[in-house]
């Protein structure tokens, strides 16, 4: 009797709590978990080191390349990539598999410019990705409404929640269950990909979401997928959906 009363009260309390939080977004981007000094560094375009790469990307955008001797700007006006980073990964026309932003850039490179694709994580690819992503800064993440993406996204979610590696942990174990707590000296972020490619101070360089995911996989003592693996794209699809509506702050600075 007393027990059920307690349980009943508990339920009422939980319901009130849920109501009080109703509609309020509990999601936090990595930006909100950074120190004010780092936030200022990111916000100041002349202090954010990622802007060096954006500058290089802008130059590359105008540089002719490949057998067709075309530059990106010959098809896409400078600044016409607004919103693209907020939407990707997506399935390009004529294809049946999703590609991420870097993959899309390389598709243009091989298909339109008739040039060799950039290597994964190469400086040129990151430069261009940063230049494109910068144009979506301030926009809400809005994944493509393509029904064909659903199965890939579901696979991404499965990967996110699947235990792996010698430590037998899933992404969700840290980033869903224990986000906000500490791992070593660092705050565990909720893993929302709002700012990629990021300038990570630990790397002293710009890096893609793939590099960041590899970092976590190595941390789990799991074998990282190869850079060309579709797993990364599926995971990114799920993460972008999970972060739907959050603001893009690319290219971000992270500790």
């Amino acid at each position: 009797m007393r027990l059920s009363a307690v349980v009943g009260l508990g339920t009422v309390f939980l319901a009130t709590l849920a109501m009080a939080q109703g509609g309020k977004d509990q999601r936090r981007s990595g930006y909100q978990d950074m120190s004010p000094a780092l936030q200022r560094m990111q916000d100041d375009d002349t202090a954010n080191p990622a802007m060096l790469y954006v500058q290089a990307g802008e130059a590359l955008w105008k540089q002719k390349a490949g057998a067709s001797n075309k530059a990106c700007v010959d098809c896409h006006d400078a600044g016409s990539m607004k919103g693209v980073a907020a939407r990707y990964p997506a399935i390009p026309s004529g294809a049946d598999k999703p590609v991420d932003l870097e993959g899309r850039i390389n598709l243009c490179r091989t298909g339109q410019q008739k040039a060799a694709p950039f290597d994964a994580e190469s400086e040129e690819l990151l430069d261009l990705a940063a230049y494109v992503a910068r144009q979506s800064r301030g926009m809400p993440i809005a994944p493509a409404d393509d029904p064909r993406l659903a199965s890939f996204r579901a696979h991404g979610e499965q990967l996110f929640k699947e235990r792996q590696g010698q430590l037998n942990l899933s992404c969700a174990n840290c980033h869903d269950d224990n986000a906000g707590k500490k791992l070593g000296g660092a705050t565990i972020p909720q893993a929302h990909p709002t700012g990629y490619p990021i300038y990570r101070l630990e790397w002293q360089a710009l890096g893609s979401l793939k590099r960041r995911l590899r970092n976590c996989l190595i941390g789990l003592r799991a074998e990282p997928y190869d850079y060309s693996s579709p797993e990364y794209v599926d995971l990114e699809l799920y993460l972008m959906d999970r972060a739907r509506g959050m603001t893009i702050d690319a290219p971000a600075v992270r500790p």
């Binding site: 375009d45 002349t46 202090a47 080191p49 802007m51 060096l52 790469y53 500058q55 290089a56 002293q204």
Partner: peptide, 28 residues
């Protein structure tokens, strides 16, 4: 080289200004 410089465009005489310079370099 790829550099970013931040300095005020106009200042009053005698004012102290902050100059910031960032450069892309591996520093190996």
């Amino acid at each position: 080289a790829n550099v970013l410089i931040n300095a005020p465009k106009t200042v009053r005489k005698g004012e102290t200004i902050e100059l910031k310079a960032l450069i892309l370099h591996p520093m190996e």
